[in-house]
Design a binder for these strands. Structure first.
Length: 243
DNA sequence: CCGGTTGTTCAGCG
DNA sequence: GCGCTGAACAACCG
């Protein structure tokens, strides 16, 4: 579930709960369940991979991590981390990280860095990236402070689309290449969102999990690259190294 | 049935 | 106190 576009879909799925009053809150998350009872959900938000359930003066931050799932008006066998029950409906979250934060989300989040937000700004993203120490491009793309919502699949696909070798560095990328990569991270995130909604995400993968390059047909590489050591699929022939 | 993973956090070490 | 590494967490799929 967990890259940014999937969290936007989650937000949209739970939208009917906005404005509804919580009657019962249960689950094994280490938060004070009583805080939500008899309180109305004011709005549902997302920022990168964070899903936010907002109340008047606090909000829940839900992160699905690798294996997180949720159900609406249905239950899994698993004990829920959090279940909120309303007059005629409910939702449950499983295997995720949940924190209760005081204040408003806008005090802690800047949507200029959220790839799925209408407020996303390429220029601010580029500036933020340049303020960081030079690093491997895979690590940079997965850095949530710079590219909020970008996950491992988007990383692999965007590097392939832009024909950038995953062993390239932020310092080594020419200005033009860097700008194109930043923009495509946003463009591809939105495509990911559309395909995910249409259940056609996997068939649109060009390089992720692929054994053969769709462009030049040679065998692809699978390596664990960068400090993050995440699974990286690439084509040695089509993706140029900038070091 | 085992191995692997759309992710993050934290303990331990030098 | 720092950066780095590896473990821990955990459910589901092939």
């Amino acid at each position: 579930m967990p890259e940014g576009p999937s969290i936007v879909i989650l937000k949209e799925t739970l939208q009917p709960f906005a404005g509804k009053k919580v009657l019962k809150a249960t689950g094994n998350a280490k938060i004070d369940m009583k805080r939500m009872v008899n309180r109305k959900i004011i709005r549902l938000e997302s920022h990168g991979k964070h899903f936010l359930v907002c109340f008047k003066d606090f909000y829940l931050r839900i992160h699905l991590l690798m294996f997180g799932t949720y159900r609406v008006n249905k239950r899994k066998e698993l004990p829920p981390r959090l279940r909120l029950e309303f007059a005629k409906s409910e939702f449950s979250f499983y295997t995720c990280s949940i924190t209760l934060n005081e204040g408003k989300p806008e005090d802690h989040y800047d949507w200029a860095f959220d790839l799925m937000s209408a407020q996303w700004k390429a220029a601010k993203t580029e500036k933020k990236l340049k303020e960081k120490k030079p690093m491997n491009i895979c690590d940079a793309l997965l850095d949530q402070e710079v590219f909020a919502g970008l996950g491992n699949i988007i990383k692999n696909e965007v590097l392939f689309r832009q024909q950038i070798h995953p062993r390239s560095t932020t310092k080594g990328l020419p200005e033009k290449k860097l700008k194109a990569l930043i923009k495509d991270a946003q463009v591809y995130s939105h495509k990911f969102y559309e395909w995910k909604k249409a259940f056609t995400l996997k068939e649109h993968w060009q390089i992720h999990t692929k054994k053969e390059c769709p462009r030049c047909k040679i065998k692809t590489e699978k390596e664990y690259i960068g400090k993050t050591k995440r699974r990286t699929f690439f084509c040695n022939n089509c993706q140029e190294l900038y070091k």
